[in-house]
C-alpha cells in the first residue's frame, strides 16, 4: 500500500520505457538488436545472419534451434566477440561487444582438451591463463570433477577417457572461473544418445547451483525443450529468428518429463514450424 504512491511518483520519469515493453523480472543480460553478419566468401557475399533481435535475461537458459548452416554458430561467435558483426548491436552485461570477450565459459562440439594435460590440468588451464590463485582453483576443479562423477579420473589423460567423459571435463573447464555466461555450441552433438541424456542432466545440475545465463546451440528438438527456459527457432540461410517459444516445464527437469503431454506438445509445435520452413519434408 505504501509502495503505491512512491511508484506512482516515479512513473512519470521512466514512463516511456515502462509502457513500451513489459518490465522483465530480471534485467537483460544479453541484448542483440539488428544483428547481421555477411561473410565475404570466394564466390561473393554470403549472408549468414539477418537482423537478429534477441534479449536474454540473467540466469536464463536459452537454446537456439535450427538446421545446419542456419548461422547458429555464427551467432555464438558474435556473442563471444570472436567474430565481428557486420551490422547491429550486441551487448553483454551492458558492455558493447567489440573484441573477444573472456568473461564467459565456452564449450564446443569437440571437447578441445589438450592431449598433453591430465583432466585436472585441462581444467586448471583456465586458472593459469587468468593468473588466478592455483590452490583455490585446484580445490574448485576437484569439486567440479566430483559434480560430474569424474573424481577418480583427475590424473587421466584425454586419450584414456571416453567421449562423454572428455566433454564433461571440457564443461568443468568452462565453469572453473565461475562465469555468469556460458556459451555452448552443440556440446553433446558428437555423443551417443545415452551419454547425451546423462550429460544433459549433469549440465542442468551444474546450472542449478549457480546463477548463470546459458546460450545453448543445438539441432535436437527434444534437447532444446528439455534444457531450456526459451527456445529460439532459426530459419535456414540467411539465419533469422522465426519464433521464440517459452518452455513452461517445472524444474528440476527429469528424463521422464519427455513423455509428458506438455513436452510432446512442444515437440509437435517445433516440428510443425520446421515443416513449414521446409526443413522437414515428409513425402517420399
Amino acid at each position: 500500500m505504501t509502495a503505491t504512491p512512491g511508484l506512482a511518483a516515479t512513473l512519470p520519469d521512466t514512463g516511456p520505457t515502462v509502457t513500451e515493453t513489459a518490465t522483465p523480472p530480471r534485467p537483460a543480460h544479453i541484448s542483440m538488436s539488428g544483428v547481421t553478419k555477411v561473410f565475404n566468401g570466394r564466390k561473393g557475399k554470403v549472408e549468414a545472419l539477418r537482423s537478429v533481435d534477441l534479449d536474454i535475461r540473467r540466469g536464463e537458459f536459452v537454446s537456439v534451434l535450427g538446421p545446419s548452416g542456419c548461422g547458429k554458430s555464427t551467432l555464438l561467435m558474435l556473442l563471444s566477440g570472436l567474430l565481428s558483426r557486420t551490422e547491429g548491436n550486441i551487448s553483454v552485461g551492458g558492455k558493447d561487444i567489440t573484441k573477444p570477450n573472456s568473461d564467459l565459459g565456452i564449450v564446443f562440439q569437440q571437447d578441445v582438451l589438450l592431449d598433453w594435460r591430465s583432466a585436472l590440468d585441462n581444467i586448471l588451464i583456465q586458472a593459469e591463463l587468468r593468473k588466478s590463485p592455483m590452490e583455490e582453483a585446484k580445490a574448485k576443479a576437484r569439486n567440479l570433477l566430483r559434480m560430474v562423477s569424474l573424481q577418480d579420473f583427475e590424473d587421466a589423460y584425454p586419450h584414456e577417457l571416453s567421449g562423454g567423459m572428455r566433454q564433461r571435463v571440457s564443461i568443468c573447464r568452462a565453469l572453473l572461473h565461475e562465469p555468469d555466461l556460458m556459451l555452448m555450441d552443440e556440446p553433446f552433438g558428437a555423443l551417443d544418445a545415452m551419454t547425451r541424456d546423462q550429460l544433459q542432466i549433469d549440465l542442468l545440475r551444474l546450472c542449478s547451483e549457480r546463477d548463470m545465463t546459458v546460450f545453448f546451440i543445438t539441432h535436437s528438438i527434444s534437447e532444446a525443450i528439455f534444457l531450456s527456459d526459451r527456445v529460439v527457432v532459426m530459419t535456414p540461410r540467411p539465419g533469422r529468428i522465426e519464433r521464440i517459444i517459452d518452455i513452461d516445464l517445472p524444474r528440476p527437469r527429469r528424463l521422464a518429463m519427455r513423455e509428458d503431454p506438455k513436452f510432446t506438445g512442444y515437440v509437435h509445435e517445433l516440428t510443425d514450424i520446421f515443416k513449414n520452413l521446409g526443413v522437414f519434408r515428409e513425402e517420399y
Partner: peptide, 24 residues
C-alpha cells in the same frame, strides 16, 4: 576451436604459442 578457446580464456599470443601451439 582451440584458438577460439584460448582467446575466450584471455590468452595472449605468447601464451597461445607456449600452452597450445607448441605442445600440440
Amino acid at each position: 576451436e582451440m584458438l577460439h578457446l584460448a582467446k575466450s580464456m584471455g590468452a595472449n599470443g605468447w601464451q597461445t604459442f607456449w600452452k597450445f601451439r607448441l605442445p600440440k
